[in-house]
């Protein structure tokens, strides 16, 4: 690992040189992206950049997108499908028609008789993973080769 520190450097740049991207490297890249990017959230007329690692999930309700943090909720101007696109390759995954979840905040999962999964988050909140998104959700944890 090569780290170059210089006071002249104005912007942090991360460069990965590799042969093939394997599962471990893919996870590392996801983590880097998670800690490098932010989304603009709105609350009481004030816009705030929110770091991705602090976001638990995005939810769309009545065509409005909300950002859920540990205890706070912000409005987001982006649509869920736009977020899904820009969050590709991060720890976020679509878990239902109206929710994108950060898998790094998942504490445990439980199967439901309906064939869905119930994910318990680190703030004790529970979200449901729809049947049709279970495979993508599972692959995010276990890799696509499972």
């Amino acid at each position: 690992m090569l780290i170059e520190q210089s006071l002249d450097c104005k912007e942090t740049e991360i460069k990965i040189t590799c042969g093939l991207i394997d599962d471990r490297l893919k996870k590392l890249i996801e983590q880097i992206k998670l800690y490098s990017f932010s989304v603009i959230g709105f609350k009481d007329g004030i816009s705030t950049p929110i770091a991705l690692e602090n976001i638990y999930y995005f939810e769309s309700v009545d065509n409005k997108t909300f950002i859920y943090l540990n205890k706070e909720v912000y409005r987001c101007n982006e649509k869920l499908y736009e977020l899904e696109k820009s969050l590709a390759g991060t720890a976020f995954v679509r878990i239902s028609k109206n929710c994108i979840l950060n898998i790094s905040v998942v504490n445990s999962v439980r199967a439901q008789l309906s064939g869905r999964l119930e994910a318990k988050l680190s703030n004790n909140e529970k979200v449901i993973v729809s049947k049709h998104y279970i495979k993508a959700f599972r692959d995010k944890f276990l890799g696509e080769g499972v």
Partner: peptide
């Protein structure tokens, strides 16, 4: 058939929990 789907789902949940 529905029960088998549930078993599959339980297996996935178990694997995910182990990974966490």
């Amino acid at each position: 058939t529905y029960f088998f789907s549930y078993i599959t789902c339980m297996d996935w949940a178990d694997k995910i929990n182990k990974s966490i």
